[in-house]
Design a protein around this nucleic acid. Structure first.
Lengths: 154, 154
DNA sequence: GTTGAAATAAGGCCACC
DNA sequence: GGTGGCCTTATTTCAAC
């Protein structure tokens, strides 16, 4: 994981579909070298995949929310069960299992606030393990396009 | 945005680097047709980009946390200012601007808990607009690989 | 909007440095 | 580990349906 690897990872996070030749040109190395590096990064598991990003509004899902969920009892079975259940719902973008006063944070995207309400009533309220939940509408969500390595003493 | 478009978007979310020919073959259409559809989805803004996903452990950032932040006064300037500040920090993966008791949720990834502590002290404690914050370590983070369109009455 | 074929460009392998 | 050349394969354009 040297400087060249970091640069490759950064460029591919910005645009995963640029050609190998273009990437090699930007980095000032031969295309075959570049290809070898990229392949090694993939095999070592540094790059885990290539994904298209989509506009949630175009998919009729402009309303986002974060749902804090508390479950009981705090057993492995209950945690795993709810986690798997939530991650499998089509409205759910991602599930955070967290320490602290809440046990889960569930990021959802739905067509409108009515369907957010319906989602909570139909998918959450009926679950017996949920002892408490709270929903926060998301006004805005900014994602950092690139994730770079951090040193021990940044 | 018909069935074919949805199928293309789903496949490209799973693997953005599959060749156009392969994608066309899976969908049972001609490569040129497929290319035209993909280009249209990109131009219409349905597909916003193609990004490589990276393993945070490989980047020496295995410790993740969600930081709830409350700022005051709740003016446009303060909100915008903190949002831009947080999004620009290298430790930050994404920033949620939320309704409810907290104003922001900041998703960070750092090398270890010591650096999480340092981050809070150096980057947050000194900001005058922050009146309260709370940090929750993330035990696990599951992301739904595909985001599909949702109908008005799912 | 979709297709097939032809031209252009890229990916991938191998011998060499 | 990096490079340059050759062959294979894919992307892209375009005329026709």
């Amino acid at each position: 994981m040297d400087e060249l690897d970091s640069a490759i990872v950064e460029h591919l996070q910005r645009d995963a579909r640029q050609t190998n030749r273009e990437l090699a040109r930007k980095l000032g190395i031969a295309p075959s070298t570049c290809l070898e590096r990229v392949r090694a990064l993939r095999n070592r598991g540094v790059i885990t995949g290539y994904h298209a990003a989509v506009d949630l509004r175009a998919l009729n899902r402009p309303v986002q929310a974060l749902l804090s969920v508390q479950v009981r009892p705090l057993s492995r079975e209950v945690i795993e069960g709810f986690k798997t259940y939530a991650a499998g719902l089509p409205e759910v973008l991602s599930v955070f299992v967290v320490a602290g006063s809440e046990d889960f944070l569930v990021h959802v995207a739905v067509p409108d606030v009515d369907q957010l309400h319906s989602f909570l009533l139909d998918r959450f309220s009926k679950r017996r393990e949920i002892v408490n939940f709270r929903s926060s509408v998301i006004y805005q969500h900014l994602s950092n396009p690139v994730t770079t390595p951090l040193g021990p003493a940044e």
